[in-house]
Design a protein around this nucleic acid. Structure first.
Lengths: 171, 171
DNA sequence: TGCTAATTTCATTTTTTTTTGAAAGCTTTG
DNA sequence: CAAAGCTTTCAAAAAAAAATGAAATTAGCA
């Protein structure tokens, strides 16, 4: 038996909700794309952000007119960032999604998932540089040494500061 | 009369410089792509970063095996971020490029050029949301109000914190 | 000023990323 | 335990982004 989703309160009412929803989607599409996320991820989050009720995937598909595959992938991404969570709905076997709205935590997660790994491999790459500094030309050595030192400072500062940043956010 | 570029010191010497150069290019290609910049921009900066001598565009093209168009575009981007500057070479009418290596300043510039404008338009979008809050359902109002408030705090915190961030960097 | 080298622009091509949708894989329940 | 519903996966298609290279423009020199 298929589930007929009862229309939630805000959907019945008015054009203005639809407008708000559109603004929200627009907002998060841009926000997310600044962070390198595909449009669909922003759309899904934007839809959920102003939804009082948890939404199942097939509704997301229908409302955003995206494919099942995209929705599934997008939700997977959002889950891994802990930007959405599923909420249990009695008598319905579909997963219902709800937006996580504590941006501080979202941000911390984003840094942990997307930035930190890159910083680690950057450090390895710098080590490799050091093992390879041209050693013939002594004058040159100093030049390279300084440049490498700068890279070290950059990565060190980044990997300290970025995780700390989330804590600074007061919201 | 065409200019024959005299081979700079580091080019003659050794495999190890070539290796360092490759690591550098690799490093910045990844770094830049985290910031949403195309590969070519990272390549150019990576090449310049470990070059003692300023390099003219045609040499960049030759060494990186990229097209003139790409090089020109990439340098334009880097110039706009103040990540490179041209240095005058007497008796040579080509522009010679040199990498700007103060990351603090680069970072500040990046935020000013790439982030701040987006934050501004985000704020406008939030204002539009406020003008459109569903007004029929009073219970609903509160919900939307809270969500909008969060977005405001997010954008406010971001546009304060991000520009300040560059100052915090100690390198 | 006219000539030539250097650079930029931009329509086209190539590459990369994202989306689609059908098939495979789970999971619940009758 | 079988059938139906929900979700994931993945090869192919579509869309978006980046690179190419030739033509147009600009700038320096003679």
């Amino acid at each position: 038996m298929a589930y007929s989703t009862p229309k939630p309160v805000q959907q019945k009412n008015s054009i203005s909700f639809k407008e708000l929803e559109i603004e929200s989607i627009d907002f998060f599409v841009r926000m997310m794309s600044m962070l390198g996320m595909p449009k669909s991820v922003g759309e899904i989050y934007g839809l959920l952000y102003f939804s009082r009720d948890p939404i199942p995937m097939d509704q997301i598909v229908k409302r955003l007119r995206i494919s099942l595959g995209t929705a599934s992938q997008g939700l997977k991404t959002l889950r891994s960032l802990k930007a959405v969570r599923t909420s249990y709905m009695p008598g319905d076997r579909r997963d219902h999604y709800i937006a996580e709205t504590e941006f501080r935590r979202l941000f911390a997660n984003f840094i942990k998932e997307e930035i930190t790994p890159h910083m680690e491999s950057a450090k390895e790459r710098i080590e490799r540089m050091e093992s390879v500094i041209p050693s013939t030309d002594h004058h040159a050595d100093e030049f390279y040494q300084i440049r490498i030192e700068k890279l070290k400072k950059l990565t060190k500062a980044s990997s300290r500061l970025l995780p700390a940043l989330a804590g600074l956010l007061k919201f």
